[in-house]
Nucleic acid binder design. Sequence first.
RNA 1: GAAUGCGUAGCUCAGCUGGUUAGAGCAUCUGCCUUUUAAGCAGAGGGUCGCAGGUUCGAAUCCUGCCGCAUUCACCA
Length: 488
Amino acid sequence: MQRRFDERRHLQESGINPYPCSFEVTGHSRQIIEHFKEDAEEKVSVAGRIMAIRRMGKASFFHIQDSDGRMQIYLKKDEVGDDAYATFKLLDIGDIVGVNGYTFRTRTGEISVHAESFELLCKSLRPIPVAKEKEVEGEKVVFDAFADRELRYRQRYVDLIVNPEVRNTFIKRSAIVSHIRSFFTSQGWLEVETPILQPIYGGAAARPFTTHHNALDMQLYLRIANELYLKRLIVGGFDGVFEFAKDFRNEGIDRFHNPEFTQVELYVAYKDYDWMMRLVEELFQQTAIAVNGTAMTTFLGHEISLEAPFRRLTIADSIREYTGAEIEGKTETELRNLAKDLGLELDPKIGSGKIIDEIFGEFVEPKLIQPTFITDYPTEMSPLAKPHRSKPGLVERFELIAGGKEICNSFSELNDPVIQRQRLEEQASLRQRGDDEAMVVDEDFLRALEYGMPPTAGLGIGIDRLVMLITGEESIRDVIFFPHLKPE
RNA sequence: GAAUGCGUAGCUCAGCUGGUUAGAGCAUCUGCCUUUUAAGCAGAGGGUCGCAGGUUCGAAUCCUGCCGCAUUCACCA
């Protein structure tokens, strides 16, 4: 590094600004290669980071990497002049340069740019961990790639420079988000923004991060969900609203959980959860095809098809199928015994809904590899969902499970303010008994419902997990640019 | 929060039944080379072996504690 500082000074002393203001770029690597014509050389100006240099005395080859790929540059001392060639000798891998020249094909067949002049655009002071590549029987083999997980996450900028597949994953993430956004927008639904700092947190069962507002001298929470605010907007008269939301949950970290994560929540008036299932099928299939060109994906070693329709199974049927146990019409005591027979050790404080959830989570969910809608959950687990139209004790709710993990959650939203108040008060008493994830009564939300919310279908999609599913990445840290790590 | 594994040069790794001055490839530096592509050839520099203690004549190597990362489990999407 000291040497590079010296070079920086050396360049400055010889009148070269190592950090100029701009450079006129006329072409990018992939586009130049695609448009290349054998007998018509094209004038181009390209810019990028030097990734490899092969100097051969009075001529050199090097590769620059720009936003969409790599381009080889050929530089001859005769043509650029002695001074420029001397400057070139001071350049390092990692420096950013602009090159003016014309396209040609080398003796070995690589489409390249024959430089007529070049300009240093940024001196790099730290060596980048370059990996070398070689083609072996048509396959690219990478040698000594920058692979240390901790370094890759802490210095994602380096990871992105050096590992093209990482860059690709994030390009796909962006494509997934923009596809969902345009799908929703094209239905006429409104993209909105709601508070991240909330005086009362709600909409999910989770522990929040707390913070403090100095001027108001009050405690505030980072949202765990935005559900209750989006419903207020449906009360306000919008037919469809959605928000790509960063939510925050003060829970453990593992390869499926980051303390801040992204959900898109959607609420559509006059619809129910049945309609929402059809929407999710169509959305997921289209998104996968838009991003990967196919509805097939590989996740955790499984081939998964996102082709609609997805299997539908009530939670009771799913437990019957995977354990042989019957949960319908059972009392809490019977359910507890049943769980014990299956080998589950349960906290004696939990109620029947939670027991069913435990059985499901232990014996069913990990086995649901192909996308499956699990429907008709016990009321106790779902205080914001509408009672089922024909099955007492259940609500109109579904979760989409794929790859053994929950990807979506959806209900026909509860819009009866009287029942909603009862449910929230039940939550509050659970809270008093020590369940610190139970919900809090939000009087303003209840007031909104009392003005009247039309029948509404709601949906939340875990974007990080959907991106994992579609890209095949096996850790949430590989689909979040800057995953949470302890400080260095 | 618990268990297991890992931490050696800028990067990828070897060395770890304790024993001269800790190695290799790439990267870096010097010299040669005007169509190379893991360019090549000749030479050189580069390390508080994660941190702190301990055992020992002697520790990268054995022991203890701490820090960080990964995986699994628990909580959760």
